[in-house]
């Protein structure tokens, strides 16, 4: 499957292991990625807060660049990109006059956004809806047997359900659950799975932000999760990078590894944990991996290898 590929900013900035692991996983799934390296930041809702028209124009430019690749499908690997780009696309598609005004701003660069020519899907949606979980099961080399995985979706990819096309036919707010099972893992249901990681207010109210992260991590630990998996690199920043501080603000020990979606996929597809950048996490994924053996789960964690 050939796709226009939008990696986002954070996957190439503070979570380089996400972009890297996606590059490793793609060939194993026969995904040919045409990277949109000329596109700009989606704005993550903050540019829209500053100026809605600016966010809509920048994302219309990204969609227009995706159209130029000739692939009708654009894939992203970030919940926040999915949410903010879908919000812009909804406005662009809803009103032809508005769309024309945005296109007039793009015109000097010879770019133009056309309604209906780009479908923008997160890797998670693409795997379930287009690649297929049966096909994925057939490619699993190392089932995540005995690995207890807590799904953490990120707000932008599950709300609002109307805009994101989530309903009984497309239960996109259950796809991580379905994917973990398809990879042979055990899904851990816990209170925070659909809640907010707190990242957007980390600079405004650090206390509330990190208490949110700490509470969800704690809930998952109490439900006996070995790790969390998230399709959102911004959630990963608060849940992994900031976890030592979240322990301080939340008042309890945590130490729960948080994996990016392509990393979990890669482990099940037989890739080496080192190749997936797991050594780059702030919280060592020792409960997930015995580093000396590269075997998933069931190893007691902590003492072995890394």
């Amino acid at each position: 499957m050939k796709l226009a590929y939008w990696p986002g900013c954070v996957s190439r900035g503070f979570t380089p292991e996400l972009h890297g692991s996606m590059a490793k996983v793609a060939p194993l799934l026969d995904l040919e990625l045409v990277e949109l390296d000329r596109a700009s930041c989606c704005g993550a809702g903050v540019i829209a807060e500053h100026s809605q028209e600016l966010a809509d124009t920048l994302n219309a430019r990204t969609f227009a660049l995706a159209q130029q690749t000739g692939n009708p499908m654009m894939m992203n690997i970030c919940s926040t990109c999915q949410g903010s780009q879908t919000e812009c696309q909804e406005r662009l598609d809803a009103n032809a006059e508005y769309r024309e005004r945005i296109n007039a701003t793009l015109q000097p660069d010879g770019l133009r956004y056309e309604k209906g020519e780009v479908v923008n899907k997160n890797l998670l949606w693409l795997l379930v809806e287009d690649f297929g979980l049966d096909e994925l099961r057939a490619r699993v080399r190392r089932p995540l047997k005995d690995l207890r995985v807590g799904p953490f979706y990120g707000c932008y990819i599950i709300r609002p359900t109307d805009r994101l096309g989530i309903d009984e036919e497309k239960p996109r707010d259950r796809y991580l659950h379905m994917l973990i099972e398809a990879l042979g893992g055990t899904v851990i249901e816990y209170a925070g799975q659909h809640k907010c990681c707190g990242f957007p207010i980390i600079t405004m109210n650090k206390d509330a932000s990190l208490k949110q992260a700490a509470r969800h991590l704690g809930d998952a630990i109490d439900a006996h999760a070995d790790c969390l998996v998230t399709p959102c690199p911004l959630c990963h920043l608060n849940l992994d990078l900031q976890q030592p501080l979240a322990e301080r603000y939340g008042g309890r020990d945590l130490g729960l590894p948080v994996l990016h979606l392509p990393q979990l996929l890669g482990l099940a597809l037989g890739l080496d944990p080192d190749d997936l950048g797991l050594a780059r996490h702030v919280v060592k994924p020792t409960t997930v991996i015995d580093w000396t053996q590269s075997v998933v789960a069931g190893v007691g964690g902590g003492s072995a290898g890394w």
């Binding site: 900013c9 700009s40 993550a44 903050v46 600079t203």
Partner: peptide, 18 residues
């Protein structure tokens, strides 16, 4: 935060988290 975000995206095209 909002002003810095917009300035950085204007200056780099991408977000410069650091």
């Amino acid at each position: 935060h909002e002003a810095a975000f917009a300035t950085l995206v204007k200056g780099y095209g991408l977000l410069h988290e650091a």
